[in-house]
Write a protein that binds this DNA or RNA. Structure first.
Lengths: 190, 190
DNA sequence: CCTACCGATCGGTAGG
DNA sequence: CCTACCGATCGGTAGG
């Protein structure tokens, strides 16, 4: 039985916040998950909200970094859109608890922290929007497509994957990305 | 200052559960919203969870009934799909608090109640699926489209409207429905 | 719907 | 990371 690190605590918090929600998780339950008392958690952190801030910030960072890598790896608009989609799905499937907490519990943050997260999310969405706008300008996507709405709809479909996709199912990750890309791009090309 | 009815209590609960989450709402806060003490709520209900059950069940019923009306009002696959989409958006925009609680807080229900809600949601999704499948069979939609995945993607875009759409914005309801329909149907026809 | 209250649990602290 | 604890708040009840 080794000692828990601060990062163990954050990871377990992400798991529990994802499953039961922030307000549905008590410090004593979180401690039990790690084999210690609720009060012992305060050797690692200052407050419960610190844990939420840390998990949610990590979610924002994961998506932001994935977008950077995606945009560096492709140069056509459709190639970049596909890379953005693949990167988004990678983040969801590899950091599911963090993502669930990011998507569903960020609204429980106090104003200052929540606004910071909203800004990060807006910046991420803007990456999708400008890739779509570039594709419209270059003629790769159809004229008259609304990049703002298209990026909202695209992220709607992508984020929902957290809610329904099962790794154990018959649809594997690359097939999922294919289907998502085809669904999204159809509206941009049709 | 008239007396509150049970339905006032349920409505206020829907509002607060939507905003702060089920576990983030205390009975005392709910009472304050209605101008009475937390303990006085128990003259109307038996438990806090009763309120969640009632709000979530109402959400399920609203969607189910909207689907029935939609399917009765159109007969082609694309007409029915459009009516399903319009009906779904009507439910979201006219019962936003109920819908938010239905979508985000149903998982806080105990097993028995949650499974009932999941069954209702699956039945609702099946309506979308069979309309899409009918359109594929009739040749209205393209051969090879996967009705199951298409219905999941469609409901993903529709449900997300709760998260981003603002009634005060420049996009009015019928334009929203138009855009949603075009986005979804593009993948089925392209 | 209020008064008066219940035991349980909450997030968190002091000191080791 | 535990012991021992804090005041505050939780969902809920009895009786009116």
């Amino acid at each position: 039985m080794l000692r828990n690190t601060r990062s163990d605590v954050v990871r377990a918090a992400g798991r529990m916040f994802a499953e039961r929600g922030y307000h549905g998780t008590s410090m004593r339950e979180l401690g039990r998950e790690l084999g210690l008392l609720g009060s012992s958690l305060y050797a690692h952190i200052d407050s419960k909200e610190d844990l939420l801030v840390e998990v949610v910030d990590r979610g924002a960072a994961l998506f932001t970094e994935a977008a950077e890598r995606a945009l560096a790896a492709a140069d056509t608009a459709s190639g970049r859109l596909r890379a953005l989609i693949a990167g988004h799905i990678d983040v969801i499937l590899e950091h599911r608890d963090v993502v669930r907490t990011f998507l569903n519990e960020a609204r429980m943050l106090d104003d200052a922290h929540r606004l910071r997260v909203v800004a990060a999310r807006d910046g991420y969405e803007a990456q999708f929007r400008s890739v779509i706008a570039a594709g419209v300008d270059s003629g790769e996507f159809k004229t008259g497509a609304d990049p703002k709405l298209a990026s909202i709809f695209t992220l709607s479909v992508l984020n929902a994957v957290e809610r329904w996709y099962r790794t154990e199912g018959e649809l594997d990750r690359s097939a999922l990305v294919d289907e998502l890309y085809r669904f999204v791009v159809a509206a941009l090309i049709a």
